[in-house]
Design a protein around this nucleic acid. Sequence first.
DNA 1: ACAAAAGTGTTGTTCGTACACCCATGG
DNA 2: CCATGGGTGTACGAACAACACTTTTGT
Lengths: 234, 234
Amino acid sequence: MSQYSGKNRVLVAVDCIIFGFDGTEMKILLIKRGFEPEKGRWSLMGGIIHPNETLDHAASRVLKQLTGLENVYMEQLHTFGEVERDPVERTLSVVYFSLIDINKFKKQINQEYHSEWFPLKKLPSLIFDHRDMVELAKQKLRYKAAFHPIVFEMLPEKFTLPQLQNLYEGIFDTLMDKRNFSRKVLSTGLLIKQKDKERLSSKRGAFYYKLDKRKYQTKFNAFLNFIPNPTNLG
Amino acid sequence: MSQYSGKNRVLVAVDCIIFGFDGTEMKILLIKRGFEPEKGRWSLMGGIIHPNETLDHAASRVLKQLTGLENVYMEQLHTFGEVERDPVERTLSVVYFSLIDINKFKKQINQEYHSEWFPLKKLPSLIFDHRDMVELAKQKLRYKAAFHPIVFEMLPEKFTLPQLQNLYEGIFDTLMDKRNFSRKVLSTGLLIKQKDKERLSSKRGAFYYKLDKRKYQTKFNAFLNFIPNPTNLG
DNA sequence: ACAAAAGTGTTGTTCGTACACCCATGG
DNA sequence: CCATGGGTGTACGAACAACACTTTTGT
C-alpha cells in the first residue's frame, strides 16, 4: 500500500461563521442558499476547496467572495464529518470562524448571495448541521474572548466603553457592572482615550477609545482576565 | 452545479497524538512508519478514513488498532491542509489527541507498528508536519488542563499528590510549590484520600488518592483554577 | 545518623465584587 | 428642569503567592 492506491477520496468544503457587532448586539452573517438541495434556506457561507489551495486559503477566499474583505481575523474551528451530513454526497466541512468590523461590510459587494446579518439570539433555521457549527463557534468565541483581547477585531477604529461592554455582554450573554468593567479593561493598558465623543446614543456622549495596536500585538497571547463569571463559560 | 459535479475529492487521514504519563514525566506514543514514503522514520499513528465512518470513529479505530484501548479521552484538535504536506498525494489530516493511562497500554497488542513512548522533551525527528501537530497538541493540552480536571485521564485509579504535581509540572513545563499545589487540588473536592501509600519512589511513602468520579463528571465543564502561572500559557 | 522526599500553616498582597452618587446634555 | 445614559471611588472578602520546618524511613 505504498502509494495510497485503492483509497477513498471525499469532498471537502469550508464553511465560514462570520461574527460582527453593530454597536449594540452580536450578529452573524448568513446567506440564502442558491442551489439544491435546500435551496432558499439560510446557510453559512461555504465552498468546496480547490486542488491547490490550503484550507486557510480556501476559507479566506470564501470570506472574500461574500464580504469583499481580506486580512480579517480568522481561525479554524472544527471539522465536521458525519457521514450523512450532506444528503447529496459525503462532504467533510472544515469550519472557520471570523470576526469582522461590521461597518466594513458592504452588502453591495455581492448581491448574488442574498446575505443578511442575524442577531445571535434570533437565528433562523439553518441547513444541515450548520446550527451545531454556530453553537460551537459561540462557545469557542467565549473561551477565546475570556482570555485574549480578540473582540477588538469586531470594533471600528474608534469605539466607546459602553459599546465595548455591550459586546462582552453579548458574547457572554450576561450583564456586567460598568464600574468594574471599565476598571478592568482600562487596567490592561490596551486602550487610548480620545478627545472626542460619540454623541448618537446618549445625550452626554461617551468618549471614544482607540486600541493601542503596539500593545495589542504584544499582549494578544498573554493571558488577560476578561472572564465575567466563570460559571457562564461552560 | 446542483449535484456537486466536477468537484475535486481528496484523501483524508486521521492522525492521533497519544499522551501518557509514567509517574514522572509526560510521554507521547509514536510508531516507526512501516511503508514508503519515509519508511522507518518516527510518525504519529494514523490512517485513511473509511467511506462510511465519521471522523471521530476513524480516530477511535486508529487508536484501538495501535493500543487496543477503547473509550479513552479523545478530542479533535485541528485539520492540517497544506497542499504539499504529503509528497505522494494531497492528503488532509484531521488530528486528534487522546489521553491514556500508560499502564493500560501493553506493547504486545500490536507489534506490527513498532511503537515507542518518547518523553515530550526528547522527541525524535518526525515525518511530514507531525512536529507541528505535536506542538499544537501540547498547547491545547495546556489550555484545557488549566481549567478542566482533564489530566486524571492519564492517571491510574490510585495516584499520589507528588505524581499529580509532576504531571502538571510536565504539562506546563514549570515548577510549582507543593504546599500551594496540594491546597489547590484538594480544595476542588475531587480527590479521596486512601489509607495506603505508594512506597516505591520515596522512603516515607506518599498517600494514594482516588478521583471522586461522581464529582468529576459534574465538575468537568466547570471552570477550575489549575493555572500555575498565567504567563507560561501562551 | 543521615539523606531524601512527604506533609503541613501563616501572612501579606492582589484581585474581584458589591455597591451609590454626581455629571453632562438634549429635549 | 428632568430624563437618560456616562463616568467615577471605596470597602470587603476570596484567592493566590511566598515562605520553613517537622516527619518518616531506608540505607
